[in-house]
Amino acid sequence: MLAYLIRRFGQSLLVMAVMATIVFFGLYMVGNPVDLLINPEDDLAAQEAAIRRLGLDQPIYIQFLQFLKGIATGNLGVSFVHNTPALELILSRLPATLELAFFAMLLAILLGIPLGMIAGLYPSSPGSRVIMGGSIIGFSTPNFWQGLMLIMLFAVFWRVLPSGGRGQTTDLFGIPVSFLTLDGLKHLILPALNLAIFKIALVIRLSRAGTSEVSLQDYVKYARARGLSEKRIVGVHILKNILIPVVTVLGLELGNVIAFAVVTETVFAWPGIGKLLIDSIGLLDRPVVVAYMMLTVFMFVMINFFVDMAYSMLDPRIRIKAGKS
C-alpha cells in the first residue's frame, strides 16, 4: 500500500512539473511575458524597473528556474488591481468556492443516488421515465442558462430567494461561511443547486446503470434467499457496489465543479475564485490569472491523487492488487 502511495505521489509531482513548464513556455509562446506580467499603465521607467525586478532581463532558463522557485515558495506575483500577492488573494476567496462546491457535491449525492437507484430498480415505471428525461435535460442545458432560469423563477417571479451574493457569513474556525446563518443559507441554495444540476444528472445516470447491473448479480439474489429485508439489500448490498464507480466519477468531477464554479459564481455574484478569475481577466490582472492556473493545476493533481486513494480504500480487490504489485 505504501509503495503504491509513494509511486502515485511521484506521478502527481511529475504532472505538476510538466504543467508548470507548459504554463511558463505557453506565456512565452503566446505573448510577450512583459505584457502579461507587467501593468501596461505604468510609465516606461517604471516598466523597466519592473522588468528588472521580475528578472525578465535574464536568460529564459534562469527565468524558468525562478518561476519554479516562485511556485515552490508560493510567490506567484502581485495583483495589479488589488496590489496584494496573487496567491494570497486567491486563497482568501477559496473558502467561498469550496463551500459552494461542497454543497453542490452533497446535493448531487443526496439527490442523484436515490433518484438513479429508483430509476434502476423500477426501469419501466413512469417515475423512472420522468427521472431519466429530467437527467437528459439537466445534461444538455448549459449551466449558466440554468442559473439564469433559477434566478428568474426564484428571485424575480416568486421572490423567495436572493439572486446573488453570499449573504450573511459567520466564522467557522476563522473561515467565513454562509451555511450557518439563515440568510447565508438562502443565498447558498440557488448557486449550489445550479452547480449541482449537471452532477445530479450524471450521478443519476451512473447509479441507474450500476443498479440495474448489480441487481442481476447472484449475490443480490442470494441476499434475498437469506431473507434480508429489501431495505438492507438496496441500501447496503446494491448501494455499496454502485458507490465505487459513483465516487470515482464524482471525485474526478470535483475538478469540473471548481471549473464550472466560474460560471455559477459569475451568474450569482458569488465571491469565490471563479468570479475573481473572470474579474481579473476582464481587468487584465494577469498575475492573478497565472496564479489561478497554477493553483488549479495543483488542485487537479491533488484531486486525482486522492480519488485514486479513496478508490483503493473502497474496493478491497484493488487494494490487494496494489499491494502485490
Binding site: 505557453g26 469540473n256 471548481i258 471549473a259 492556473m293
Partner: peptide, 12 residues
C-alpha cells in the same frame, strides 16, 4: 476540464 482550459487560453 474543457471549459477551464478554453477559458484560460482565451484569457491569454
Amino acid at each position: 476540464p474543457a471549459l477551464l482550459v478554453a477559458l484560460l487560453l482565451l484569457a491569454i
